[in-house]
Design a protein around this nucleic acid. Structure first.
Lengths: 189, 189
DNA sequence: CCTTCATTTCAGACATGCCTGAAATTGACA
DNA sequence: TGTCAATTTCAGGCATGTCTGAAATGAAGG
């Protein structure tokens, strides 16, 4: 760490934590730390700011920013009178969260759903009916979840928050409905 | 790959895919493949079965199973008349899914929530009020989501599925309610 | 169109993670 | 408690990922 830019103790610890968590989130330490900077910053940050704050190489910053752009977690923002690129995170935390969830779904779930559908089609002729049944079951379950997610994702943030605030009340509703209405489900395959 | 155990084409492709996805899911190829085996298997599998099916070393299987146990995604199951340990995945796919979500939350979200709370407390005396405000905002958002998750997670699977099936109807409900009731939210900090 | 600064790319060094065979440990059964 | 098979641990080797400085590319202003 060379002459670190002046960061408040609070920011330092926040950034350090995002670095530690980076690995668990499937990015890496540096990318995590770099992301943490514009989250807290009051103004868009440029690459030099990041170098000064974290003491990593200029090229590392470039590549890490590229990755963050790939995740759509940072946006370029032109700062008048400065030729350098500046970056910021969406001001609305909910917006960032939506993007994050969307990207993870795209990377971690969609490919599997696609592949399961392919295998399901090809399973028509396959004598391995046991495997085929389980593949169908898994495909159906994932589809149920992603369809629901798609629907909820259409809600504007205000209403999404309202839904989340319903928490316990919503649970009671569902519980009560279940005692009256028939909830017909194939529980297992 | 040495003399591979006889696996149907379908199983092979399923296992291969889980291997490919392993890296994206934060485990690794071998662990992913090993997990795929008992998912499709009709009976609990033992370490030797895995070695035969995947052609990896016995010690690798041991370590990978240890990791899967850490994720609570496989359970040991005693098979009468066989001294070897056997492993299976929960028969109910929803059960596995719940465990998976729970473990990821525990590893990827809870530590951050804990840390944000700590920082929030320590922020009392800190002059960096901008950072403090954003930390509070983030903590509150994550809490809202995890509280909601906790509530929904209490639902038994039947009712959880019913909720998911509601999808579009639920969205309409929320939409309609929003036009009538005041949904007071601080949208941004 | 040329200069200058910013950004990106890339090869090689370094670090981390993964896999293996050999050795140590565990545990069931006599 | 001794035996033996099964499992786990671990050091070392291989593979992959990360980071850097140097060189190439890009872009804005004269």
């Amino acid at each position: 760490m060379k002459e670190a830019m002046q960061l408040s103790r609070l920011r330092q610890e926040f950034i350090l934590h995002f670095g530690e968590m980076g690995a668990r989130w499937g990015i890496n330490r540096t990318v995590g730390q770099i992301y943490a900077l514009p989250v807290l910053a009051d103004a868009p940050v440029c690459a030099d700011d990041i170098v000064a704050a974290l003491g990593v190489s200029r090229s590392n910053v470039s590549m890490s920013l590229k990755e963050l752009k790939g995740w759509r977690l940072v946006n370029r923002r032109h700062v008048p009178g400065d030729r350098r690129d500046h970056f910021e995170t969406p001001q609305d935390l909910w917006h960032s969260t939506r993007i994050l969830v969307e990207e993870r779904k795209k990377r971690e779930i969609d490919p599997t759903l696609t592949r399961l559908r392919e295998l399901e089609l090809r399973a028509e002729g396959d004598p391995d009916t046991g495997a085929a049944a389980r593949i169908t079951e898994m495909r159906a379950m994932i589809e149920l979840m992603t369809d629901w997610y798609d629907e909820m994702n259409k809600l504007e943030t205000e209403k999404l928050v309202a839904l989340l605030r319903m928490g316990a009340r919503l649970k009671k509703m569902i519980d009560a409905a279940g005692d009256v209405l028939p909830l017909s489900i194939r529980t297992k395959g």
